[in-house]
Nucleic acid binder design. Structure first.
Length: 262
DNA sequence: AAGGAAGTCAACCGCTAGGAC
DNA sequence: AGTCCTAGCGGTTGACTTCCT
């Protein structure tokens, strides 16, 4: 296949879009649609390649784009879906109305991935103080997390783990993303239904942890985090430390099992 | 106050699937 | 069947911002 010359060789503009360019693109698409992205910039009078126009429209100018904060639910959904679908950002975006694959990808790489896979990084690893969810709670994160949830007499039993095991293990298990345990589906096969899991209240987690002598998990401080002004104020590192958060992720994974077939 | 490190996110790059011919 | 072309996808980059020392 012969690749089309890049934008610069064609004398086309690259880099950030100006408000004027945005307006031209929006006006043109409102009038004529975007049946042919390659032809669009020429017809609209833009010195951009079609690819750039498409990206700008899809990721920024589209009227149904939802800007601003990702809600707690959206972030839980991203974590859950990523566990099942991997880096299939467009598939994940399809489940989050108004969010683009690019935005979700950025949020994952800049916030969520760190929380899920590197929760034990040193507190000196981040300089930010206002973006709470980018900086895990040191006190709570010093505690190991549960990594296995086992069917037990029609209910669920939380198994303690070694201190080396971390959030990533629990993430893998809860989302069923990897490993021989098979995540939520495995629990279900062992006789624990979604409803039963949903019926588990906080007391269960407390009881389970206390009855297992080898359990080293301590219930995180449930003091609400102070309000912050940044865009992630709805979802904080404290949430990651909270069993309820993982239970939400865990339950959602069961409801979305069909996505793993994609 | 200044410089450097780290975080954020818009935009670009390269590749591929799939439709048209 | 083979080639060309386009849209769309995921990975990466780099400008800008924020924070720390």
């Amino acid at each position: 296949m012969v690749r089309a010359p890049c934008c610069e060789k064609m004398g086309l503009k690259k880099g950030p879009w100006t408000p004027e360019e945005d307006q031209v693109l929006v006006d043109y698409i409102h009038r004529h649609g975007h049946a042919n992205w390659r032809a669009l910039p020429k017809q609209a009078g833009l010195l951009r390649c079609g690819k750039s126009c498409r990206l700008r429209w899809v990721n920024y100018l589209r009227p149904d784009i939802k800007r601003g904060n990702f809600s707690r639910e959206e972030q839980e959904t991203i974590i859950r879906l990523h566990g099942m679908l991997g880096n299939r950002w467009s598939a994940i975006a399809a489940k989050l109305a108004g969010r683009t694959d690019n935005e979700i990808k950025n949020v994952w790489h800049t916030h969520l991935k760190k929380l899920v896979f590197s929760p034990n990084m040193s507190s000196t690893g981040s300089k930010r103080t206002t973006t709470d969810c980018s900086r895990p709670n040191r006190t709570a994160l010093s505690q190991p997390l549960p990594t296995r949830l086992e069917a037990d007499h029609g209910g669920a039993r939380l198994a303690s783990t070694s201190p080396e095991q971390s959030y990533s293990d629990f993430y893998s298990f809860a989302t069923g993303s990897s490993g021989p345990s098979g995540g939520i589906s495995n629990v279900k096969e062992e006789g624990c239904s979604s409803q039963e899991l949903q019926d588990i209240d906080e007391g269960f987690w407390l009881d389970t942890l206390s009855m297992d002598e080898s359990a080293t998990l301590t219930i995180p401080d449930t003091t609400p985090p102070p309000p912050t002004s940044d865009r992630f104020d709805l979802f904080t590192s404290s949430d990651i430390d909270n069993t309820d958060f993982w239970l939400n992720v865990f339950m959602g994974a069961g409801d979305l099992q069909e996505l793993s077939q994609l």
